[in-house]
Structures are given as C-alpha cells and as structure tokens.
Amino acid sequence: MDTAAPAPGATPAVTLPRRAGIGLRHPHVPAFLSGERPDVAWVEVHSETYLVAGGPRLAALETIRRDYALSCHGVGLSLGSAAGLDANHLANLRQLYDRLQPDQISDHLAWTGTGGAYLNDLLPLPLTAETRDVVAINIAHAQDVLGRRLLVENPSLYMPLILPPGVETIPEPQFLADLVARTGCGLLLDVNNVVVCAHNLGFDAAAYLADFPLEAVGEIHVAGHRREAFAPWVGPDAGAGGVVLIDDHGSRVSDTVWDLLAGVLSRTGPLPVLVEWDMDVPPLEVLLGEAAHAQSLLDGVAAHA
C-alpha cells in the first residue's frame, strides 16, 4: 500500500524558522557577502533565477546559504498546465535543489505557458474538478522528481473567469485543501495575494481566510501592491475594468495586509513570514525594517502562545 503521502489533514512540518525572512535580491547580495551578516532569520530566492550552469551569481548564493536558512520559491513549474510538467525543467530544478539543499521549496497555483512556451507570468486557472485533477497530478509528479515536499501558493488574480453553465467553480480555499489531501503538499499563504484577489474579483478577504486550511500552511508571504485606476501602459480603455490592484511587490506592505497577517498568526501561532520586494528594490535597511515589523507580530503571538 502506498503510504508516501501523509494522511489527509495531517499537519505538515514547518521546515523554515518560524521567524521573519526576506526575498534575496541582486542589489542586496554584496551586503550578505560582506561579512556584516544582515539580521534576518532566513532568505528566499526565485529558483529559476539560479538555474544557470555556474558563475558568480550561483557561487554567491552558495556562500550566503552557509549562513542562512534558505527557501527556493519557483515561478516556472506551471502546476496548472493541462499538458503536464516540463521534464527538463524538473530535472534542472532537482539538480539545483540537490546542490543548494534548501530548507523548503514552493511554487504557485497557476500556469505559465503551454506548448513549450514560458510567458513569465502566473496565469489564472478555472478552479474546476478537471483543473483539480490536473494540478494534483502535476504536484505529485513534481514532488516525486524533486524528492521534496512542495508548498503551493495562492495566486494573485486580475481577471474573472466565467465557466459554462453546469460547470461548478470550487472555492479556492477548498481547492487548495483538496490538493493538500490528495498530494500531501503544503501551502504557502500569500496574504497580499488574498487582498489583491478580494478586491479584483470582489470577495471578502476575511471570509476567504476563515475558510483557508491554515493547518497546511508552511510559510506566509506579505508584499506591497499598487492601485491602478486606469493603466496607460495597456491602453486608455483598460479603465473599463475599474480600479485594479496590481501585485507588483514594489512598495511597503499595506496596513490591510499587516492586519490580516496578525489575524492569521493569532490562529496559527508563529510561522515563517517572508517580506517580498521585487520592483524598485529599496535599500536593504528598508526591507529589513519591514521584516522587523513582521517579526514584531510574530513575537506578539509567540508571547500569547
């Protein structure tokens, strides 16, 4: 009998420090290599950024990894691909993960291209029973080849998908819980993505989080987003879509996101919390300040535990 997958509902191990971490970005790498040991418990990188044969970028990460717990966050598995996963990409990731020995790996509930293309964006999925079957098989495939348990992140969404009559939409928290039950994967809860989706698709963020299977969460993301009343870079009529929140990871974490994070942590106790900042990357001090704020929330719930 196959006992590889944990029983449905089993509490997954949290493998990163239950403290605040930051996304490691190129402008900050010299500070991490300088010996001054920036004060943060762990760092996360985008796996695909380090899928290179060699050279200084990979060497720098190997050096930093000796001093910090590491999370490798993928953006290219395309777990929602109807055509299945790219075997070459999986093999490359396996090699990278064997080399870096990350404390945790993750990717998204999304697709990134079809027919061999990679579109460099996390694209929306219709949350149907068919999609659930596809994603569950892809997660199992990935976990098998990578030899590691995967955390799956809730995506940020901009466009509502309208299903044909008779095809039922599975609410996202239920969809994710089903994936956990079927594959033994864990979840990465991105609180900013919840706020972005709640606004863009018109649902209540608190209600979503009330339904979220928090017992499966191994990591939390927070980040900044921006408001676009109308987007000149996509044409004047984009305003027909109304005010849209864009998940650009380009600013401080909003108060709404901090408040929701505090609410989640009061239910879960301390978890690894990552501050992501990818666009207009600020000085390291600013990012560490955001991480310190996350840490203060973690310390608050730890004190009450």
């Binding site: 987007a231 870079w233 996509v234």
Partner: peptide, 30 residues
C-alpha cells in the same frame, strides 16, 4: 492594443477584455 477577451471562451465581456490587457502587458513588457 489587443482584441479584448475575444477568443477566450472563459473570459467574455468588456471587463474580462480590459483585465486581459493587464496580463498581456505583464507578459510582453516583462
């Protein structure tokens, strides 16, 4: 500028068409 959501069965209508442009811009510009 794109043809809105034309051609995507699951994204009909003006809102989907406008929102699709966000994804198109993300993909092509990035």
């Amino acid at each position: 500028g794109g043809e809105g959501g034309a051609g995507i069965d699951l994204a009909p209508g003006a809102v989907a068409g406008a929102r699709l442009k966000i994804y198109r811009a993300n993909v092509q510009q990035s």
